[in-house]
Amino acid sequence: MLSSVRTWLDPSENHRLGERPDYRFSLANERTFLAWLRTGLALIGGGLAVAQFLSGGLARDVLALVLLALGGLVAVRALDHWARCERAIRRGAELPPSRFPAVLALLVTFGAGALLAMVLAGAVGR
């Protein structure tokens, strides 16, 4: 675990592995990382919006906290996936598989359903 964190914070670790890849692959990996960061920021923004604009109550607080936590989780997962992909690219290995996009899509769908239920129940706009 500690070695993973070190590779997150010290990119020179990756430069000592394998061969120098075509820079386009590294840049594509970085763009994917930035897209995941935007997703995490959007979830955090959604959590703040839920906390600010929905009527008070336990459901609002739980939904806001879930969105905020999920946004933070997406950011950490993005960093880990970026580092693992960068290592694989430099080694000429297969890219690491990830179930996280599917899990995230299901969680976002669940969150959208919860928000829809709250809107239909009249929790918004009061």
Score class of each variant (00 low, 15 high):
9 L>M: 11
10 D>A: 04
11 P>L: 10
11 P>V: 05
12 S>N: 04
12 S>K: 08
12 S>Y: 03
12 S>H: 06
13 E>H: 07
14 N>R: 10
14 N>S: 14
14 N>L: 14
15 H>M: 04
16 R>I: 05
16 R>S: 12
16 R>E: 12
17 L>Q: 09
18 G>S: 01
18 G>D: 06
19 E>M: 05
19 E>A: 08
20 R>A: 02
21 P>T: 03
21 P>R: 04
22 D>I: 01
22 D>C: 00
24 R>D: 01
25 F>R: 05
25 F>V: 00
25 F>P: 00
26 S>V: 02
27 L>M: 08
28 A>H: 00
29 N>R: 01
30 E>C: 00
30 E>A: 06
30 E>S: 02
31 R>I: 01
31 R>D: 03
31 R>Y: 03
32 T>L: 03
33 F>H: 08
33 F>A: 06
34 L>H: 09
35 A>D: 12
36 W>T: 04
38 R>G: 09
38 R>Q: 10
38 R>K: 13
38 R>E: 07
39 T>L: 14
39 T>C: 15
40 G>N: 13
40 G>E: 14
41 L>R: 15
43 L>S: 15
44 I>A: 15
44 I>C: 11
45 G>A: 15
47 G>W: 08
47 G>A: 03
47 G>V: 07
48 L>I: 09
49 A>N: 08
50 V>Y: 07
50 V>D: 06
51 A>V: 01
52 Q>K: 13
52 Q>T: 10
53 F>K: 02
53 F>Q: 04
54 L>F: 15
55 S>T: 12
55 S>F: 03
56 G>N: 05
56 G>R: 06
57 G>M: 02
58 L>A: 12
58 L>R: 11
59 A>V: 11
59 A>M: 10
60 R>Y: 09
61 D>F: 11
61 D>R: 11
61 D>Y: 06
62 V>T: 12
63 L>A: 10
63 L>N: 03
63 L>Q: 13
63 L>K: 03
64 A>Q: 07
64 A>I: 05
64 A>V: 04
65 L>P: 00
65 L>T: 09
65 L>I: 05
66 V>Y: 12
66 V>L: 12
67 L>A: 14
68 L>I: 15
69 A>I: 10
69 A>N: 10
69 A>C: 08
69 A>E: 07
